[in-house]
Structure formats: C-alpha cells, structure tokens
C-alpha cells in the first residue's frame, strides 16, 4: 500500500513519538510491555541535571559570599527576581521569581537536549501544553484573587455584553497559542534538521552543525525567553486590582 511505503521510506524525522520500554515499570505496574514516551525520559534527565546543579549551588550559603559558587547562585536568583520585578512589578517578585526561573531553566535545558542525542521534550505538544495549562490556571487564580468571583465573571462582559464569546475564546486561545508556539518552533527545527541530514546523506559534515547551532541553541534561548515573558505578561494583565 502507498501509505506503508510512505511511512517506510528512508527518510525519518523523529516526528512520531518513540517509546522506551522500561523493565522496572513492568514489575511496578504489573503490565506487560510497559513503555514510556521518550520525551518524558529526557525530561527526567533535565530534572536530574537541574536538581543536581542547583543543589550544589545552594549548599552551605553564607551571609557574606565567600565562594564563586555562591556568587553564581546569587547572580542567577537576582537575575530572575529582577526580571520578574521589571516585567510584573515589585509585588510579584517573591511569588513568581522562583517559578519563572525554574521554568526558564527547564525550557532552556529541554531545548538543548536535542544536541545531546536525546529527544527534545519541547517538540512534544503534551509537554508544552502542560506548561501552558499551568499558565492558564495562574491567570485564573490571579483574576479571582485580585478581582473576586464577581470581578472575574464581570471581565467576560467587558467592555460590551455581546463580547462574551470572544472573551471566552480569548481566555482559551492564549494558552493554546503559547503551547503551539514553543512546540512548532522546536519541532520545525527538528524536521528541518532531519531533512538536511537526509538530503546530505553521507556528506553531512559541517552544515548540520551550523544549522543545529541556530535551530537548537538560538531557538532555545529565544523561545524560553518568550515563553516566560508571555507567562508573566498574561498573569500581570490578569491582575484586576487598582493600584
């Protein structure tokens, strides 16, 4: 059949999700052929790296910094809390600084996973979608907390009652577009990289490295920056309290 030949063609991009069979899961869940998506496994790697790095950075802190390690840790924390303060105002600094910093580091390292031969977790829509859902609930929480239930419901008929459907669609469109933006950017980089490798065949020497620098490194920085910036501006826009 034509589809089979289309699917079995030589050219493969890591498009469809690969699953990794894990033997210890079989014993744990009692199911045969227990598999887990590759993007989840590479997220575990990211979590492990981030956990170890920040555990080492955060150990034995002194009031007066003595080591370079502590200076680096303070610089990272200061950078993110300053960035949150600049984008959302001083009230949000303490509450959102840790979340935004963790999200940025996680997305950045996830995008870099493609360089190390693992699957890029952000090229999986379920991963980016879950982050966008967190943003959606943060926006909901901020709206209800600052405006009350009445203010939240009133925001739907603002500025005119006939705008209700548009406001409801707008509430859901923001997280969807946020998830798809990160997903599409990273997946397109992966697909283009796969196409270049396929086209060059055994002559794939220098060009894929240059392209990978753009599609993995540059996209990683820009997209993680954009994702956290949009998260912050959505939450800051949802604040209905009058200052």
């Amino acid at each position: 059949m034509l589809t089979e030949t289309m699917l079995m063609a030589e050219f493969t991009v890591d498009g469809p999700l690969r699953s990794i069979p894990l033997p210890f899961l079989e014993g744990l869940l009692g199911e045969e052929n227990a598999c887990i998506a590759e993007s989840v496994v590479s997220q575990w790697v990211v979590m492990l790296i981030l956990g170890v790095v920040f555990f080492i950075l955060g150990r034995n802190l002194k009031v007066k910094p003595e080591t370079k390690r502590q200076a680096a840790a303070e610089w990272i924390v200061g950078f993110f809390s300053g960035y949150v303060e600049e984008s959302m105002g001083p009230r949000y600094k303490r509450r959102y600084g840790p979340y935004i910093g963790a999200l940025f580091c996680f997305i950045f390292l996830s995008c870099l996973m493609g360089l190390f031969g693992l699957r890029n977790p952000t090229a999986d829509v379920s991963v980016t979608g879950s982050w966008a859902i967190v943003t959606f609930f943060l926006v909901l929480f901020t709206k209800i907390k600052t405006g009350g239930m009445k203010g939240y419901l009133h925001s739907f008929i603002d500025p005119m009652p006939f705008m209700i459907p548009f406001n409801i669609i707008g509430d859901f469109a923001n997280p969807i577009s946020q998830a798809l933006r990160l997903f599409g950017n990273n997946l397109s980089g992966m697909v283009i990289g796969g196409l270049i490798y396929f086209a060059l065949g055994s002559f794939a020497i220098a060009l894929p490295a240059v392209l990978s620098l753009y599609f993995d490194l540059f996209t990683a920085v820009i997209q993680s920056y954009i994702f956290v910036t949009l998260t912050m501006s959505y939450v800051a826009m949802a604040d209905m309290s009058e200052d």
Binding site: G15, S177, L180, R181, F183, G184, N185, L187, S188, V191, I222, Y225, I226, T229, L230, S233
Partner: peptide, 20 residues
C-alpha cells in the same frame, strides 16, 4: 521587538502545525 515577533509568528506556527 522579540515579543512582537513571537506574537506575529503565531499564525505561521498554526499553518506549520496544519502542514505537519
């Protein structure tokens, strides 16, 4: 500018997802 670029990109990303 980068944020504006990201927002302008949305429609392109939608079409990319349809194509994929």
């Amino acid at each position: 500018m980068i944020i504006g670029d990201a927002l302008a990109e949305t429609t392109g990303i939608y079409s990319l997802i349809v194509a994929l």
